[in-house]
Lab assay of single mutants.
Amino acid sequence: TETYKYDDKREAEKAAEEFRRRGITVTVEERNGTWVLESK
């Protein structure tokens, strides 16, 4: 599991889209005002 942090929800979702395009499952969730993207 890799974790990436973003200040902006849009950025996180854009990154998530890129991962999914490569066939990687990711989750995006907000933690304490930071958007956390996790690849499984």
Results as ranks from 00 to 15, higher is better:
K9E: 08
W35D: 01
I24D: 04
T25S: 12
T27G: 03
T25R: 10
A16E: 03
A15G: 03
R22I: 06
T34S: 13
E13Q: 08
E18Y: 11
G23W: 02
V36Y: 14
K9Q: 10
T34K: 15
T1F: 14
A15W: 06
V26T: 04
R22S: 04
V26S: 02
T27L: 08
E17I: 08
K5T: 15
A12I: 02
R31N: 06
E13W: 09
Y6P: 01
R22W: 07
E18N: 08
W35K: 00
V36Q: 04
E18H: 08
R10F: 12
I24N: 06
K40Q: 12
N32V: 03
R20L: 08
I24R: 08
E13V: 07
I24Y: 15
K40M: 11
R21Q: 08
Y4V: 08
S39N: 09
R21A: 09
E29G: 05
E38P: 01
E30Q: 09
A16L: 05
S39Q: 12
E38W: 11
E13N: 05
E2D: 10
A12T: 01
A16S: 03
K9W: 10
T1P: 11
R10Q: 13
G33K: 03
V28N: 00
E11H: 07
E17A: 10
V26Q: 01
G33C: 04
D8P: 01
E38D: 06
E13Y: 11
T3P: 09
K14D: 08
R22K: 10
E18R: 09
E11K: 09
R10H: 12
T1I: 13
E18F: 09
T34V: 15
E30P: 04
Y4W: 13
K9H: 07
G33F: 03
E38H: 11
I24S: 04
T1Y: 14
I24Q: 08
E38G: 04
T25V: 13
E30K: 08
K5V: 15
E38N: 10
E38L: 15
G23Q: 02
Y4T: 07
V26I: 06
F19R: 03
Y4A: 06
F19K: 03
R21Y: 05
S39F: 15
K40H: 13
A12K: 00
E2P: 11
W35P: 00
K40N: 10
T3E: 09
N32A: 06
A12F: 02
E2H: 14
E2N: 13
R21T: 05
A16W: 03
A16Y: 04
V36K: 02
R20A: 09
E38I: 15
Y6T: 02
K14A: 12
K9D: 02
L37W: 01
E11Q: 10
F19H: 03
R10L: 12
T25F: 14
E13F: 11
I24K: 07
E29I: 15
T1W: 15
K40G: 11
N32Q: 06
A16C: 05
A16T: 02
E29W: 11
R20K: 07
K40Y: 13
D8Q: 06
T27R: 09
E11N: 06
K14I: 10
E11M: 10
Y4Q: 07
D8C: 07
K14W: 07
K5N: 09
T3Q: 11
G23L: 02
E30S: 07
N32P: 01
S39R: 14
V28I: 14
